[in-house]
Amino acid sequence: MGIRHKRAVQQSRQTSSATASRIYSRKNVSRYSERARKRRRGKIIRRSIVCTLLIMLITAGSAVALWFNSIVARLNDAGIITDELRAVLVDSDVAREPFYMLLLGTDGRPGEDTYRTDSIILARIDATTQQVTLISIPRDTKVEYKGSTMKINAVFTYGQMDDGNGAEEMVEAVNELCGVQISEYAEINFSGMETLIDAVGGIDLYIPEGDAVEGDEHLSVDVPSGQQHLDGEHALAFARSRYLYADGDYTRMRHQRMVLGALADKILNSLDVSTIPAILDSLADMVHTSLSVNDIIALVNAMRGMDTDSMYSANIPSWAGDDTYIDGQSYVFVYEDALREMMERVDAGEDPQGPQTMGEGGDSSATIGDLSENSSSDWSNGTATTSDDAEAESTESE
């Protein structure tokens, strides 16, 4: 029998101090507890950081939402953009189909309940073709409102007296006068226009010889002729002056369309779209519109790169004189047949071939660019030349 050797007992591996601290035993209670406390503190810190970041994101998101909603609420002021107004506006997809928009310039100030319209422009906008037509309506135009004869800007005032808001009544009056269906509405007061032009950094405008604003006692600044960079105050003076010109209010309406064209050029071709919400925030107490902020941004994006000089320009076919007085009050009378024919062209997206001063129009065209090439006296004397005339002459010479 061989000798049986006793198997040596394998000694257990010594546990490292780091490992021992992770293993609970009676010998390392303190080390285990300390490590557990560190783990708990680490989890608490991580959770606190995550919760703080979430709270910051939620708070920032809420603040942005509140800010955005504040802009919308002020732009779409329920005291002006009422349910009654929206009921008379027709639906449209402003970035994808042509639509009509009524633009009013007023002398109102924030907080005032009653004010007057100084500028009335019907705009047809087609973002799909980047074509805009601006049709001015003299504020003294004779219309019928609830069985009474009055000036069209008085409709706005009477509307305010009836229900505290004249927007709905003005839309209905212009719909009836021009035979259209208006989809959107906007009004801006004088201070708002001045602030808007300053907010976009001013506008560039060529002012024809003879159209300078010099010595108008109703205004506080002069505006010289030639190429000008205008701030809000000077642009507003140019758009409001009428006593210096032979055809008075018709020149003022042309100047208003020129200012709108220059403003459109600045917004569509020079302005960073991301700045629009901040600009709207600064203007929201002075500008009111049925358009949403999203619609405004979509429309600007769709129209970017547009040649604003090619915007069609006209006023409604009309006249004023000794034969347009009623009960001692001067009115502007409309050439109704000429207006109907012009609006048929406008509705088709064509050149309106409308007048730029008193008269019926129908035999020539003009764009915003043409307005800067002719003075007030050129238009009133019938000696104005347009790009359409130049093209006709070129065709004849060929």
Rank of each mutant, 00 (worst) to 15 (best):
M1I: 13
A8Y: 11
Q10K: 14
Q14N: 12
T15W: 04
S17Y: 10
A18P: 04
A20E: 12
A20T: 02
S25F: 05
R31H: 14
R31I: 09
Y32K: 05
Y32H: 12
R40A: 13
I44F: 11
M56D: 09
A60H: 06
N69H: 15
N76Y: 02
G79N: 15
L85V: 01
D93I: 08
V94P: 00
A95G: 06
P98K: 01
L102G: 04
G108L: 03
P110N: 03
G111M: 04
Y115F: 15
I121R: 04
I125F: 05
A127F: 03
T128N: 06
Q130K: 03
I135R: 01
A154I: 10
Q160H: 00
M161H: 12
N165R: 12
E172W: 05
A173Q: 07
E176L: 13
L177M: 13
E184S: 08
I188L: 07
I197H: 01
D198K: 02
G202L: 04
D204I: 06
E209N: 08
V213W: 07
G215P: 01
P224W: 06
G226V: 04
Q227R: 11
D231P: 02
D231G: 09
E233T: 01
H234L: 08
A237M: 02
Y243H: 12
Y245C: 00
A246G: 14
D247A: 07
R254A: 11
H255E: 07
A262E: 11
L263Y: 03
L271K: 01
I276V: 14
P277S: 01
A278Q: 12
I279N: 05
D281A: 15
D281H: 14
L283P: 05
L283V: 00
T289P: 03
S290W: 04
S290V: 10
D307V: 07
N315D: 11
G321I: 03
Y325L: 08
V334A: 09
E336G: 10
A338M: 13
M342A: 12
V346E: 04
G354R: 06
Q356T: 11
T357S: 10
S377P: 05
W379E: 09
T386D: 14
T386S: 15
A390G: 10
E393H: 12
S394Q: 13
